[in-house]
Simulated assay, not measured.
Amino acid sequence: MRIAIAGAGVLGRLLAWRLARMGHTVQVVDPATGPNAPALGATLSQPVAAGYTAAGLLSPLAELDHAEPELAALGWRSIVMWRDVASSLAPHAPQTLLRVQGSLLVAHNADMGSALRVMVKLRSACEADPSAWPAPEIVPASELRVMEPELLPGLSAWWLPGEGQLEPRLLLDALAAQATGVQWHWGQRVAQVHAGCLRLDDDERIDCDLAIDTRGLGARADVPGLRGVRGELVWLHAPGVHLRHPVRLLHPRHRVYIVPRAGQHIVVGASEIESEDRSPVSLRSAVELMAAAHSVLPGLAEARIVHLDTNLRPAWPDHQPRIEASPGLLRITGLYRHGWLLAPALVEDALCQVLPEPAHA
């Protein structure tokens, strides 16, 4: 088939890579100037894919605090599929793109009431279907010192087995670089997506057998109702800090994650802020994020601030993703803060609705 994709974020690149491998003729249109990740700290003239402003957490168990079990089930499917993607893109070193080594939830003793309410919710979901959900495990203080010796002593901690993390910048670049035969149209914006056609801002059109819309918030002209949810990240260079696993801090006001990344970096972020403001990170947000991270990882005191990043994640009012398929047209919208967690499973489910051959080919 001749397939045209609007948007080169996580979904767009994953679709392009998979469809090209299946033998389809694929074109992708995106307003970014090129396929590579923007430099940390660079001043950008236009928004970039929300996938770049993400910690890349694959946390279906932790998400049961806020999401339905159906979403977590998609996440567990996606982790298995991400393993295959990473092995294909980096056969000699898939761990550079993906690590599935579990994660930690931690809480200060003063916040145990809030933390225990979260754990009750997670355990209830796991007990409802023990075969599907690995239950969180209490980590004794002696074991925590071995697992993560640089965490603040005295924290309460729970182990979430089977969770993982991606390197979003490296993975997005690899998907574009290895999508053999795909024709990329960088620096062009899609105004509308119709069945069998992409209409660009300059009135040019790309005709195709199947048009796919993965523009995120850029799709609002065609699908009103999407809203933006602000996400914020702090990039720290911390060569003296050795964090082995992603850590989430359970706190009555903040949902803060602390994630080790390549190049001796640590990313600190907040899961969601109900705002469509794209302006730089505020003083209050930056202070709260870094203070929360420092409260559980004291070694960050000497880390250097490399980059403060913001972006908007596309979401529907119910926070559930949507797949809309009709002859000649496919839309995948509203991934909220779950883009990396859900992308492979959503791609597979969507392609099963529009392609004559199996989507796993």
Rank of each mutant, 00 (worst) to 15 (best):
P60D: 01
D65F: 13
L105M: 07
A37K: 07
G240R: 12
Q192W: 04
A132H: 11
A345L: 02
V296F: 06
P136W: 12
G154E: 13
L172Y: 07
D349H: 04
L341D: 00
L236A: 11
P224V: 03
A49S: 11
E288V: 06
T53I: 07
P260K: 05
L44A: 00
V267S: 10
D111V: 08
R18W: 05
R313I: 13
I273T: 03
G218L: 02
V28S: 04
V80N: 01
E63G: 12
D129N: 14
E272W: 02
V146C: 14
E63R: 12
I266S: 09
R331L: 01
L166C: 02
P321K: 00
P280F: 10
A141L: 04
A115P: 02
H319T: 02
L335M: 08
G263N: 12
A37E: 14
P161Q: 05
L40G: 05
D349C: 01
R189W: 05
V354T: 09
L243V: 09
R145A: 15
V287E: 13
L217W: 00
L61R: 03
R220Q: 09
P35H: 09
Q101I: 13
P327K: 00
L160Y: 04
D203V: 05
E143K: 14
L249W: 15
L160G: 06
A176V: 06
L57V: 04
L171W: 09
M1V: 08
E63N: 11
G154T: 09
L58M: 13
Q95I: 03
L171D: 08
E163S: 06
A191I: 06
P239R: 15
S131M: 10
G240T: 08
M1Y: 07
H265K: 09
L210P: 03
S142G: 07
W159N: 10
V241W: 05
P280I: 11
G113H: 14
S124R: 15
W184Y: 03
N36A: 15
G23N: 09
A238D: 08
Y52I: 07
V80F: 02
G113M: 11
D202H: 08
D129P: 04
A135L: 05
A32G: 00
C352D: 15
H108G: 13
G75T: 07
L89M: 15
A191H: 13
P356Q: 11
